[in-house]
Nucleic acid binder design. Structure first.
Lengths: 134, 134
DNA sequence: GTAGCTGCAAACTCTTTGCAACTCT
DNA sequence: AGAGTTGCAAAGAGTTTGCAGCTAC
């Protein structure tokens, strides 16, 4: 049982074939797959997976903090395993997503929230851009 | 004809009663109304306004850059007149939206995009927080 | 006069859910 | 054994769209 499956077990989740397939897809993903993407890939591992189960499982994993749901300006959700904290730059031409991290921004975020009288709980920072020709 | 109506005219839009009602609602809004909000308020000015027209008009105004569409993590859109550039902090308890602006972040954003090989076209920065008890 | 705008209702997309059957523990 | 999980199909929420009639210019 790998690390993620352990976290699921600890949360009291039963490890079904469908869930294992979905987790495998997410663990192996180098991109930020949509629900439909996860569904298509999971079906190749376990043909019995249904789209309803993908939705249910991803919501559950999101609540547990095992995955992170993103809603880039596309009208649907994308998911990734919750690893290190980072933000995203979306390539407006290809839809490709690049990750980045910046300590300075983290500090400023905290300060802004505090100055406005708020405790920062969550944050969404997304850049949208076009590849520079060199 | 006020400033916003002029911009619409310049863009070739016909100024109908429905559009004027919608624009009046947006101009007068101190919050960030949802489509439903705009619809309800516009109906009080011009009872003939339909929700379809509100959707169509807001999309149009968004394309023209006259309004800005936001999708805070709520599952629907909110709009505001496109005035000065700013970001938003959403109060997780009340749903209230506070605006802020920060030059440092603007600079860092540009730098991050450039360093990743991108021209920054758009950006979404939203903080979600809980009011601090003092 | 006519291109553009409108209301209506139907259609669409993404997501959620009720239910009866099934399965992990 | 039993609580949790599943697939299916139907329902939901928000949004878009085809169409015939209307209206600003």
């Amino acid at each position: 049982m790998n690390n993620i499956e352990k976290r699921c077990a600890d949360a009291g989740l039963k490890m079904t074939g469908q869930r294992r397939a979905i987790l495998d897809v997410l663990s192996g993903a180098k991109d930020h797959p949509s629900v439909e993407d996860v569904y298509e890939r999971a079906k190749k591992i376990d043909a019995s997976v249904s789209i309803a189960t993908v939705y249910r499982t991803l919501s559950l994993l999101d609540e547990l903090g095992i995955v992170v749901r993103h809603e880039f300006q596309e009208g649907y959700s994308r998911y990734e395993i919750n690893s290190s904290h980072h933000h995203h730059l979306v390539d407006l031409e290809s839809g490709k997503v690049v990750e980045f991290q910046n300590d300075e921004i983290e500090k400023i975020k905290q300060k802004i929230a505090k100055d406005l009288g708020y405790e920062l709980v969550e944050c969404r920072l997304e850049l949208y851009g076009r590849k520079l020709k060199k």
